[in-house]
Amino acid sequence: THFTSQQLQELEATFQRNHYPDMSTREEIAVWTNLTEARVRVWFKNRRAKWR
């Protein structure tokens, strides 16, 4: 999946605040970024792996 810079900005900003967002937070992010909750969940999983 290719993310727009706007989507990445929103995802990264949320990641800085919370590395493990809950389901409702992921659903909110999905609405803001026009992505599915599953895409958001996978992005956070991959981002945490990169962060370690």
Rank of each mutant, 00 (worst) to 15 (best):
T33V: 12
V42I: 14
Q6H: 11
W32E: 10
H19L: 03
N46C: 12
T25H: 08
L8G: 02
F44V: 00
W32C: 11
W51I: 06
Q6T: 10
H2Y: 13
Q7N: 03
E27I: 14
A49N: 08
S24N: 13
M23S: 08
E37R: 02
T4K: 03
K45T: 07
T14N: 15
Q6W: 15
H19C: 08
W51S: 06
E28T: 11
R47N: 01
L11G: 00
Q7H: 05
E37N: 04
T33N: 07
A38Y: 13
E37A: 07
W32Q: 15
N18K: 04
R39T: 13
L11H: 01
N18A: 04
R48H: 04
S5L: 14
E10C: 13
F15Y: 06
R48E: 03
Q16K: 10
A13Q: 09
T4S: 09
W43S: 00
A49E: 11
R17A: 09
R47E: 04
D22F: 02
T14V: 15
E28Q: 15
R52A: 11
S24E: 12
K45A: 10
N34D: 08
F44M: 04
Q9T: 11
R41T: 06
H19G: 03
E37D: 03
T14M: 15
E28F: 10
K50M: 10
V40D: 00
A13G: 06
S5E: 11
Q16M: 09
H19S: 05
L11R: 00
N34Y: 05
H19Q: 09
H19V: 04
R26F: 07
R17Q: 11
L11Y: 01
Q9M: 15
E12P: 00
V40F: 01
T14C: 12
Q6N: 08
S5K: 14
R39E: 15
W43A: 00
Q6P: 05
E28D: 09
Q7R: 03
M23V: 09
Y20E: 03
V40Y: 00
H2Q: 10
E12M: 02
R48P: 01
F44P: 00
R26S: 01
H19A: 06
H2D: 11
A13N: 09
Q6L: 10
E27P: 01
F44L: 02
W51N: 07
R41W: 06
R39Y: 09
Y20R: 04
W32F: 12
V31T: 11
D22A: 08
W43Q: 00
V31R: 14
L11Q: 00
T33F: 14
Q16C: 10
S5T: 13
Q9Y: 13
L8E: 09
H2P: 11
N18T: 08
P21Q: 02
D22K: 06
W32K: 15
K50H: 07
L11C: 04
Q6S: 10
P21W: 05
T36K: 04
W51Q: 07
W32G: 10
V31D: 08
V42G: 08
F3Y: 12
Q6G: 08
Q7D: 03
R47D: 01
V40I: 11
D22Q: 06
W51H: 12
R52E: 10
R41S: 08
I29D: 01
N46E: 13
A30Y: 03
W32S: 15
W43C: 02
T33L: 15
N46D: 10
W51C: 13
Q7T: 06
H2L: 11
R39S: 13
N18L: 07
T36V: 03
Q6F: 14
Q16T: 08
R26G: 02
N18I: 10
W51V: 06
Y20Q: 03
F44N: 00
E10I: 15
R41E: 07
A30H: 02
Y20W: 12
N34Q: 10
F3V: 06
W43M: 00
E28G: 07
T33M: 14
T25P: 01
T14S: 15
Q9N: 11
E27A: 14
D22P: 07
Q9K: 13
F44K: 00
L8Q: 08
T1H: 12
E10H: 15
W43I: 00
W43H: 00
N34H: 10
R47M: 05
S24I: 11
Q9G: 07
Y20C: 08
Y20A: 03
T33H: 07
V40E: 00
K50S: 08
L35D: 02
S24F: 10
L8T: 07
V42K: 15
F15T: 03
A13D: 09
W32A: 15
